[in-house]
């Protein structure tokens, strides 16, 4: 895991925000605007530490609206385009979310033995940058502000994708099925610790 951490640090040192944004732009196809919101995340504003390893490190709740007609499933990815070698560093991959879902509850289970809440029954998590199929929040180097894209994809089919897909594999599998997408883009900076590391 030190390996992954060093990749993260190296990636963030090499890449600044504008570069990240252009990488992001290339990664998505043009699609209808899905309206994405979150009770506790706001674009451009710092995330609460509950969603980071400085706190409970649980996944944030999300809601969506203006869902395209014919949506059969959703997928959500959280990525930091200012980290990773190559970028992005992926914090969360979740898919097979039923088309009836209005959003995601807070604290999606990290134990595969714990069933998903009924509203998102069948939802499956893919591998993040730490190669775990769970949400892990931001842990940027102290003193640097990073940007986190929580992107929601509305899909025209329930693709019944297998567990443990990476973001790249998910994007590949969703090709041609994306009816719309939208995102919420908070930021996070770790405070200088009270005790020396």
């Amino acid at each position: 895991m030190t390996h992954f951490l060093s990749l993260l640090l190296l990636g963030s040192a090499l890449l600044a925000g504008p570069v990240a944004a252009s990488v992001f732009a290339q990664a998505v196809a043009p699609a209808a605007k899905l309206v994405v919101d979150s009770p506790r995340l706001k674009s451009g504003e710092p995330m609460h530490k509950d969603f980071t390893p400085d706190g409970r490190n649980v996944s944030p709740a999300m809601t969506w609206s203006n869902v395209p007609e014919g949506t059969k499933a959703f997928a959500v990815v959280c990525a930091d385009f200012g980290a990773g070698l190559p970028p992005p560093w992926v914090h969360w991959v979740i898919y097979n979310i039923p088309g009836t879902a209005k959003g995601l509850p807070e604290a999606v289970p990290i134990d595969p033995a714990v069933p998903m809440p009924a509203a998102i029954a069948g939802a499956t998590q893919g591998l993040n940058g730490w190669k775990r199929a769970i949400y892990r929040g931001p842990a940027p180097p102290v003193g640097t502000t990073h940007v986190y894209y929580f992107t929601v994809y509305a899909l025209d089919a329930d693709l019944k994708l297998k567990p443990n897909l990476t973001r790249a594999e998910l994007l590949d599998a969703m090709k041609g099925h994306i009816l719309g997408q939208g995102d919420v883009v908070p930021v996070y900076e770790r405070r200088v610790p009270r005790t020396a590391e």
């Binding site: 134990d111 595969p112 033995a113 591998l127 190669k131 775990r132 443990n164």
Partner: peptide, 10 residues
Amino acid sequence: FNRVPGWGAA
């Protein structure tokens, strides 16, 4: 082989 984490029940 990236199929499970390195510890725990799985």
